[in-house]
């Protein structure tokens, strides 16, 4: 039974099971996504650089407009990988492993940016580049998880096995996401508690909140654009590998025919 025949697959997903159809969709969608990303980034940066100085943090508050969206996307990319891992293990969707594998380097980049900009922001505000508190340490662990997953994919030759192993590892690593989110509530940390994604609403002043949401949206569209581009690359890599194997088989068959 192919994925298209499978009754377990949600109907919308079966249409994209064919990589050729998926690539055609990417070709149509990518220019629009790129345009929206550029516009949102321009608006977000303009809004971000127009905010007044914060009464406590002064002008360094502007670092928030790259730090917080990077952190959101670092965790968002991991959630994409979690849903892809379910796609591999539950529905066996052929593009699920492609999506997970394409999201990992992007997630690693956003995590690195979250760590780097957070460290740069921490130096003038906390007086230190780094502290081993629960929020910073769990976020560093997320970066290590991303690197580990990329190493895992590259270390197993057989595609189905590497997809399954990585999917299980992604689901195990997902335990770190709520730890990152709630670490500031569960432990005493130097990092401030949540001020945007709170059950009782954001505590951030609107003049900072709207530029932050705009930059968050810009980073989301940037991630979607880069993710589709990276998925397209992964599909091409698999097509090349298939053709190379076919070429090797053809050469062997010819050799056997002549001997």
């Amino acid at each position: 039974m192919t994925i298209v025949d499978s009754p377990n697959i949600p109907r919308g997903l079966t249409a994209l099971a064919n990589p050729t159809r998926f690539l055609a969709l990417v070709r149509i969608v990518l220019p629009f996504l790129t345009l929206i990303t550029v516009i949102l980034l321009a608006i977000g940066l303009w809004m971000g650089f127009s905010v007044p100085d914060d009464y406590q943090q002064g002008r360094t508050v502007r670092i928030m407009f790259v730090h917080v969206p990077s952190v959101w996307m670092a965790m968002g990319a991991y959630m994409v990988m979690v849903s892809s891992a379910l796609g591999v293990l539950v529905w066996r969707h052929p593009l699920a492993d492609v999506a997970a594998r394409a999201a990992a380097p992007l997630g690693a980049c956003f995590t690195f940016l979250g760590l780097a900009t957070g460290s740069i922001w921490g130096r003038p505000m906390w007086g230190t580049w780094w502290v081993w508190d629960a929020r910073l340490t769990s976020f560093l662990i997320l970066f290590i998880i991303y690197l580990g997953l990329m190493a895992l994919w590259n270390s197993i030759e057989e595609p189905a096995r590497s997809a399954r192993m990585a999917a299980v590892a992604i689901l195990v690593g997902a335990i770190n996401i709520p730890i990152i989110k709630f670490s500031v509530d569960w432990f005493t940390t130097l990092h401030q508690p949540a001020s945007v994604l709170r059950s009782d609403g954001p505590t951030l002043a609107p003049e900072f909140l709207y530029p932050l949401f705009t930059m968050g949206l810009a980073f989301l569209f940037l991630f979607l654009t880069l993710h589709l581009m990276a998925m397209r690359n992964e599909i091409l890599r698999r097509q090349i590998r298939t053709l190379q194997r076919k070429a090797t088989r053809d050469i062997r068959a010819k050799k056997q025919a002549t001997t």
Binding site: R59, T60, V66, C109, F112, A116, W121
Partner: peptide, 21 residues
Amino acid sequence: IFGTQYFGFIASSFGITLFVL
């Protein structure tokens, strides 16, 4: 844009983000 007191910190945050992306 960046102010004078924390120019290096703000500029390097935006610079590193631009470079990585």
